[in-house]
Each structure stands twice: as C-alpha cells, then as structure tokens.
C-alpha cells in the first residue's frame, strides 16, 4: 500500500543544532501513528514540517504525493492540525472561531452546523460556546482547537500532544473518533507523552530521540526488539532512549536536598 506520509533523509537545522537528523518514516493510510520522544527530541518540528508550517533544511517529505514546502495550501487543505499549545483568537468565542475557520476552509454551511454541534456536545463545551476563548481553561481551549481542526473532515489529522489537558471522558471520545477516522481510510499522526494512550490507540509507534528515530513498528515488534515480551511501552521507551536505569539520578537528586 502506498504511504500516506513519506519522509526520507529529513534534516532540520536551527542555528548550530539539528532538530531532525536523517529521519525516515512511512505512515500508511487508515492507520494511527504515534510519535513518542522526550522533550526537545524533534516531535513538534516533524509534525510542523508534515503540516506545511515549517521548512525543512534537506531531505524529502511527501503528504499524499504532495511536497509540503512546494504545495503549502494543498497540503493544508488535506491536513487538520492541532498545535501543542492551542493558538486561537482569544477575543472570539468558540462559535465565532469555528465560523471563521469554516469560511476560510469554504465548508458547506449545512455540514458545518451539524459537525460543530455534534462535536461540541460530545466534548461537553456547549456552555462555553459564547465565552471569550481567552477566558476558557486549557482543557476547554484544547477541545476548541480539536473541533476547529476537524471541521473540514481532513484526510490527515496531525495532533501535537492533542490529548493534553483533556478529561478522561473527552480523551475516550477523542480516541474513538480517531479510530473511526482511521477506519474511513484517513491517516492520524500524533505525538504524545502519555504511554497508555499510545499503547491503546496506535497501530504503529515511532520513538524519536535527539532528532532520530531509534525504533519504529507495531507494539509487538517494539517488544520483540527490546527483548522483553512482557514489558510495557514505558519500559521500552525508557530503554530505547537510554534512560532505563534512572536510580543513580534519583539517588543523586535526593542527596542534593539532604546535604
């Protein structure tokens, strides 16, 4: 099957450091792909390059056959992007923000109303629909950002820590929604720190460390490679990122306070 997203030899350099270093990956359509990695490992940079929000230094990226740096608008039409920190016009209400996004994306009026109302109900933000976005809690703002990114029924959903700040009910609904998108042949790629989410939702996982993918595959394959068939994703993650034995660090930390 042809990959929905294909990345080859991707480099991204900021001043004197590489955020991404010879990165290769393929994401198939109809799959949920999780990107895991510690802070500063390059997850956000990768997702932004895929979403045509950032230029790469070198290498190639293909999103449904399109190069995001050459066909920015076409790629943005395909993608629904949820940023790590929800960025919206805070002086608008969620309702006004959805209308603006729908107008810019040129979505049919009848479809918009139905989609907005069903998502607003499902994520439980009906009573905040007329408030300033700036006055909402982080979690509610995250829900508004998620709804806005899904309004055009995107072919590819890119979520950068999309589950951050969500209550368990909303997280469960979002997981189900992501699954249903994948079943309809769409591609979901998201980064997360929450190993349980990655383990329960993702078909494939890539572990990113210092700008490189240190391992990728299904959960079973990762377990097989780590040599511990009974281990969970957190243990595999810590082992592959060289943080398996944290005891000396924790010990030294405790000592620094005792002294």
């Amino acid at each position: 099957m042809e990959a929905s997203i294909s990345v080859r030899g991707l480099y991204k350099k900021y001043v004197d450091n590489y955020a991404l270093n010879d990165l290769n990956l393929d994401v198939e359509p109809g799959k949920i792909f999780g990107v895991l990695g510690p802070n500063g490992s390059g997850k956000t940079t990768l997702l932004k390059i895929i979403s045509a929000l950032l230029e790469r230094t070198s290498g190639s990226v293909s999103v449904r056959g399109l190069d995001p740096s050459k066909h920015k608008d076409q790629v943005k039409k395909l993608v629904g992007y949820v940023p790590e920190v929800p960025t919206m016009y805070e002086s608008l209400s969620p309702g006004e923000f959805f209308s603006f996004v729908a107008t810019v994306r040129n979505i049919e009026e009848s479809l918009v109303e139905e989609r907005i109302n069903s998502m607003v109900r499902a994520l439980g933000i009906s009573d905040s629909i007329d408030s300033f976005i700036g006055s909402l809690s982080f979690g509610t703002r995250q829900k508004v950002a998620i709804i806005a990114s899904l309004l055009h029924d995107p072919e590819i959903i890119v979520m950068d820590e999309g589950m951050n700040g969500l209550d368990p009910r909303s997280a469960k609904i979002l997981k189900e929604l992501m699954r249903s998108f994948a079943e309809r042949g769409k591609t979901v790629i998201f980064s997360t720190h929450i190993m349980d989410v990655a383990e329960s939702v993702c078909d494939t996982v890539a572990i990113l460390y210092k700008g490189r993918i240190v391992s990728t595959g299904t959960m079973d394959k990762l377990k097989e490679r780590s040599g511990k068939s009974s281990s969970n994703l957190e243990e595999i993650f810590l082992k592959l990122t060289g943080n398996e034995d944290l005891d000396p660090l924790i010990h030294s930390l405790k000592e620094s306070f005792r002294s």
Partner: peptide
C-alpha cells in the same frame, strides 16, 4: 503575540 498563529494551519493566502 503570535497573532497569525491561528490562521497558519489554514490554506489561506488572505
């Protein structure tokens, strides 16, 4: 204030 941040992911040259 990152005021164009909200429209960056949109296919919007305007």
């Amino acid at each position: 204030m990152n005021l164009l941040g909200p429209v960056s992911p949109l296919p919007y040259e305007g």
